[in-house]
Design a protein around this nucleic acid. Structure first.
Lengths: 202, 202, 202, 202
DNA sequence: GATGAATGAGTCTTCATTCAT
DNA sequence: GATGAATGAAGACTCATTCAT
């Protein structure tokens, strides 16, 4: 008989659900687990969400929009494009770490395309953010000219790979900073080393 | 009552299970589904496998050892290290495509570490193969000198990212060849362009 | 959806389970049967008991402690040792009759020793009660001197036999009173007839 | 592809089934277990028995008739009634011990009356044997006069109790000889001690 | 708004029974 | 006669969902 405002409860549930889904996956997480983690009754869950799927979807939307907001507000305080780029990468990687790649790899169950639209929108949005950073960097002369679309695709690819490695075999991983630097090297103007080259150059 | 040889049935089950697990994940796949896909009765499954977990683990082992064999036999017919490298990447990517990343992203459910050992061994083995190719390429003068261990880690990271992109948003993807070339650029000796650079350079 | 208080449901289940286990044995009783008999859903059973074994064990504990209490409270109102003895036998036999010997003969399945500890404790306790009655009877001069431990063993043996006969071939049975008297004859002081003797003596 | 005569296989199966049923109970014993113990294929079982129930019933019949024959042939070589009586008790108890009371307590599962007819007939037959021994003992003057029917009922009751005690709590048991003597005391002519009395008499 | 007892379809697994070989 | 792969109904147990309180 806890008295809480509706929104308060909803938030509590979402936070709990995020934790539980992250840890056990969609199928592996039970409504009871989530209720327990949210310190609410099982029935209480259904006051705020139609069903498990709805909860999951809402959760993702919130998570995504939270992250998007955090990123865009953080980017406002950056001066150089390198700084902005580094910040983005760091935020992205930390977020992924925290949620153990929930964003990336969950949702294959349940008819194969569970929540895919939301994800896609999220990815497109984030890629847009990167593209903008690069564009700006090129305009300001900080970054060299390149095919912005292709570059952002490749960057995302590397990011994904890094996150997945984080989950799958954390032992065999270079550091986040290295990851960021690795990509940055390719973008910066005054840098003739290749991604895989170790110093001495051509 | 269809009569089949034991091994025939086992193979049929493994193939079916691969498909179903790939499509629905471990928890999302039911034994009934697998039985249906294998065109066998539910009970029949248990003639060949002790339980769901056993089936899944066996499946992974087989899949991995099949792939490992395919790779090592294919590599024998290659001349240059570039060729070998390209071939490895292609096989790896195609295999991943076929199994929709089963190897990569399954197994977070079920106490979080389900079948992880097998995966780790697989990854380590594959990374070993890459390291060997690079080493040989360096020795032959085809590839430039670099930290082989680090390079292979990064390559795997990119591969993983590519595979995941394949699954998560296939639309937004450069081609496998591009992926291979992208990485190769960093290894080849006479190539001063950076990974993300678009020709014209500094 | 019937609403009941938790304890009410639990009792209903235990009563139903007692009936079903008694009638079909441990393996022969299905959770569905029990659920049906308790007028509850299958899932409902698991609200109150972890699993079948837990239900069975709880059931036995309750049954035993119920009986033990009934006996000890009833014995308080008895004056002579003969009366106490008779009462005990009657209660024991009626209880056994009601539960069709659940206490005695279940539990050979399931690794052979299922719930044996609880039973053993029960038997030891009951034998203790008998021993006490005899001891008191001897002290008061009502019963003749005898090896109390041995006597109680034999008495239990006869009781068991009687209960089993009750189940296995109820037709071929002398009455419970006869059983009680039969044993009592051996204990009473002024009685020179032997158990199997029919009046007229040597 | 073992070649055996039909009857040979049948016997092997029955022996195996006896062991397995004895150890696991009716429901607890699986046809596969029995097949394994009989060193025959699962399908092979059904060449000789219609189904599990049939196998069980046949098994009991055979077991009973075997025992009956053993008893009646053994009794032929006895001189005194005491000797005959002792022999009967010993055979009965040993048989029960060997089969862990299969005869007594199995078959409550499966509609409550599984194989009961066979058992009843067996019990009646055995009780008949006892009655005959007592009758003869009385005629010869060895035993005192008594109600033969009642006496044999009581004797069976004690036997059952003894067997059950053997199974349920073997620790708390007097020896088989004691059991035999206990009963015999009541029958023998020149014996004024009562069953439960410990020497010193009235 | 909140609870948690209750539901029942669905999950994995077992096993008596059948039948092509 | 004998085999053992195959079947499918049934068992124990789980869990998303509902609803009386």
């Amino acid at each position: 008989m806890n008295k809480r405002s509706g929104t308060e409860s909803k938030k509590k549930i979402i936070n709990a659900a995020l934790k539980v889904f992250t840890e056990h996956g969609y199928k592996g997480a039970s409504m009871r687990m989530i209720a327990g983690a949210a310190d609410i009754s099982v029935g209480g869950l259904y006051l705020y969400f139609d069903n498990k799927e709805d909860l999951y979807l809402t959760l993702m939307k919130e998570t995504f929009s939270d992250f998007t907001q955090k990123v865009s507000s953080a980017l406002k305080d950056t001066r150089t494009s390198s700084e902005a780029f580094n910040l983005f990468i760091t935020l992205y990687l930390n977020n992924a770490k925290e949620h153990r790649g929930l964003i990336l790899i969950q949702g294959r169950e349940h008819k194969f395309t569970f929540g895919m639209d939301i994800k896609r929108r999220f990815f497109i949005h984030q890629r847009g953010a990167i593209e903008e950073i690069i564009q700006r960097g090129i305009k300001s002369g900080e970054f060299r000219k390149c095919n912005v679309k292709e570059a952002s695709k490749i960057i995302f690819c590397v990011l994904r790979g890094f996150i997945l490695s984080l989950i799958v075999e954390p032992a065999a991983l270079f550091s986040p900073e290295e990851c960021s630097n690795l990509i940055l090297k390719g973008l910066l103007k005054n840098n003739s080393e290749t991604a895989l080259g170790e110093t001495n150059g051509s």
